[in-house]
Amino acid sequence: MKTVGLPKGLLYYRYETLWKSFFKALNVPVMVSEESNLLLLEKGKKKSIDEACLSLKLFIGHVESLKNKCDYVLVPRIYSLEKDEQVCTNFNCLYDLIKNVYPELNILNYNIDVKHHKSEKKAFIAMGNTLGFSKLKSKKAYAFAKSQEKIEKEKKEQNQNIKLKTNKKKILILGHPYNTKDCLIGKSITDFLSNYPVEIIYSDIFNEKLVNKYAKKISPKVHWTMNKELLASFMYYKDKVDGVIVISAFPCGPDSLTNEMILRKKANAKVLLLTFEELNSNIALLTRLESFLDMLKGGIHL
């Protein structure tokens, strides 16, 4: 059986359950790349141009680490997830970019373009087809994966709701899941925060049905699906938590504008904006985090 490699970057964190259970239902062995580390980043930097964003560089590093270990590497291409909306253009060109950087690599690919009537279901069936499964089989696998994803999401939401009800100080980590959960970027923050008596709330665990309602309050015209979710979850959690830490990679296109909107319309919320670059040490970052925590406590106690 052919193995499929899943690079642990960008869309992996959004579709983890969906991908894994889809391949599990089809009995396809899956291989996930290692956690991101400095060596991986170095590899990615070599292969990408200077101005590409940190997350993209890390993704290329992940692809590089999977290169000779598996038969296929999964690189999806997304144009639009909703009608009249878009995603960051990096996802538009992700497949072609990887294909041109590694011309010999075997890439497993699917294409979601809701604006031009190519839904997620169609995309997954087409992907099953390239792996050599019948339409019916991949349809079933997709339905199974979707149900698994739903169960997982509900579980996470319940956990989050329990966390919100505690008396501890609550901090919202706001950012794309590929930034907040990455070892080099967001995880260093959550690891640091876990030493303190605070509850961490993640912005990506958020009911999808509420997105439009809350996004309208802060910015009615935003057209990036992922950033719309971020803005909505900021408005939803804003009054329920004590502080917000916004995490973004440098130089993120959509974030550069939506972060500005957050900072301008935050009202009373306490927001710390952290932008990540290819730095090797996070000492400067920890100082800022410490002072932010002190501020949440209500001043420095001598």
Binding site: S48, I49, E51, A52, C53, T89, C93, G253
Partner: peptide, 12 residues
């Protein structure tokens, strides 16, 4: 500087 669509296209 930082034009995302072009950054995606430049390697190609």
């Amino acid at each position: 500087t930082g034009c995302t669509p072009e950054i995606g296209a430049i390697p190609i």
